[in-house]
Each structure stands twice: as structure tokens, then as C-alpha cells.
């Protein structure tokens, strides 16, 4: 089964296998290129030798023999190199958490915990709104109280303008005097009425 090396890919931004394939193809291309260059040089040299019977076909045959051997060794060595690189270089050890996943280390919460947390945040938000509402209501009442108190004080002040509850100075005494003597007046009135009958 293919191990897609997803976590490594998340870190490197490419799959390690692609990287190895890229290296393999590049190395192999160089082996071929250098072999072509070698064959060209030998061909050129051989053809410049006086009386040389070495043909291009023979040289090509030699090249293919050497290249076949080199490719076989190349592939074997490359498999080993690939294993080492995939295990030791292009590898995220199992105990490693990538920086972008750090939160999973601290908050391994499951689905339920998360929903509970979301609900609690929502309830807190509603409570906060309620408290804000209460605050506005209280401030509104304080505002109303201020106006009411001002009006009541104004009324009281108006009363004060009339003097104290017994009216302007002396009115109280006069009233008391009147009250006191109104009784006398009433009895005199009654006497007079009596006598006139």
C-alpha cells in the first residue's frame, strides 16, 4: 500500500516521492548524457586513428554494455539512497507535530467539548447583552429620576417661596389668633342671637 507521506508533504510542500523521482530522473539523465559524450569522444578518436578498424556499431555496443551495467548498479544504489533519504531526511518523525498543528497538542477536545464551549460562549454573550440592557435601563431610570427630582425640588422650592407651611411670617400667628378668637366671636354671636329672641 502506498504511504502518501501526507504529513511530510504538508511540511515540505511537495511529496517526498516526487522529490526522489525528480532526483532519479535528473541523475539518470546525466548518466545518459555523459555516456553519450564519452561515446562521441571515443568515436571521434577512433575515427582519427590511422588504419583503425573500430566501427561505430562496435563502439555503440560497448557503450550499451557499460551503460546497462551502470544503470543496473545505479538503480540498485538509488533504491538504497531513496530509502535512507525518505527515512532520515524527507521524513517527519512520528513524535513530531508541525507548528501549524500545535493547537492539537493543547486542545485535543472532541466534538462534544467543542460544542459545550461554543454554547458557553453563546450564553456568556447573551448574559453580557442582558447586563448591558440592564445597564441601559438603570441609566435611563437614573436620568428620569434626575428630571423628576429636579421637578419635585422645584415644587418644593415653590412651596418654600410661599414661606413655610404656615405661610408668610406672622400669618401663622394671625391664623392662631383668628382661630383662638373665632371661638369667642362665635359665642358672642350666639349670645346676641339668644338675647334678640
Amino acid at each position: 500500500s502506498i504511504n502518501p507521506l501526507l504529513y511530510e508533504t504538508q511540511f515540505f510542500g511537495f511529496t517526498p516521492q516526487t522529490c526522489m523521482l525528480r532526483i532519479y530522473i535528473a541523475f539518470q539523465d546525466y548518466l545518459f548524457e555523459v555516456m553519450v559524450a564519452v561515446e562521441k569522444v571515443i568515436l571521434k578518436k577512433a575515427s582519427s586513428l590511422p588504419g583503425s578498424t573500430l566501427s561505430a556499431v562496435q563502439i555503440r555496443g560497448s557503450t550499451e554494455t557499460f551503460l546497462r551495467f551502470m544503470r543496473e548498479r545505479f538503480n540498485r544504489l538509488f533504491v538504497k539512497m531513496e530509502q535512507v533519504l525518505l527515512q532520515l531526511v524527507l521524513n517527519i518523525p512520528p513524535n513530531i507535530l508541525l507548528p501549524e498543528d500545535r493547537s492539537h497538542e493543547k486542545y485535543p477536545q472532541g466534538r462534544e467539548d467543542f460544542h459545550l464551549l461554543q454554547q458557553e460562549v453563546e450564553q456568556l454573550r447573551l448574559r453580557y447583552k442582558a447586563e448591558l440592557g440592564a445597564k441601559h435601563a438603570l441609566l435611563a431610570e437614573l436620568e428620569v429620576q434626575k428630571v423628576t427630582q429636579a421637578r419635585l425640588k422645584k415644587t418644593l422650592h415653590w412651596f418654600d417661596g410661599l414661606g413655610d407651611a404656615h405661610g408668610p411670617l406672622g400669618l401663622g400667628e394671625m391664623m392662631a389668633f383668628l382661630i383662638q378668637h373665632s371661638g369667642r366671636l362665635r359665642s358672642i354671636t350666639q349670645d346676641v342671637t339668644q338675647k334678640s329672641k
Binding site: 504529513y7 512520528p94 493547537s103 486542545y107 485535543p108 477536545q109 464551549l117 460562549v121
Partner: peptide, 24 residues
């Protein structure tokens, strides 16, 4: 260590928890 579960909505949850905790 943790590894992606293959269920994105599960995995993204942990990323959001710090912010919800902060909000809380």
C-alpha cells in the same frame, strides 16, 4: 504526535478552541 484525522471539521476544531477560550 497528533496526525490529521481525515475529517477536516474535526481537525479544524482544535485550531479554533484557543480563540473560543479567549472569547470565553
Amino acid at each position: 504526535a497528533w496526525r490529521p484525522s481525515g475529517i477536516p471539521e474535526d481537525d479544524v476544531r482544535s485550531t479554533l478552541i484557543p480563540y473560543f477560550l479567549q472569547q470565553q
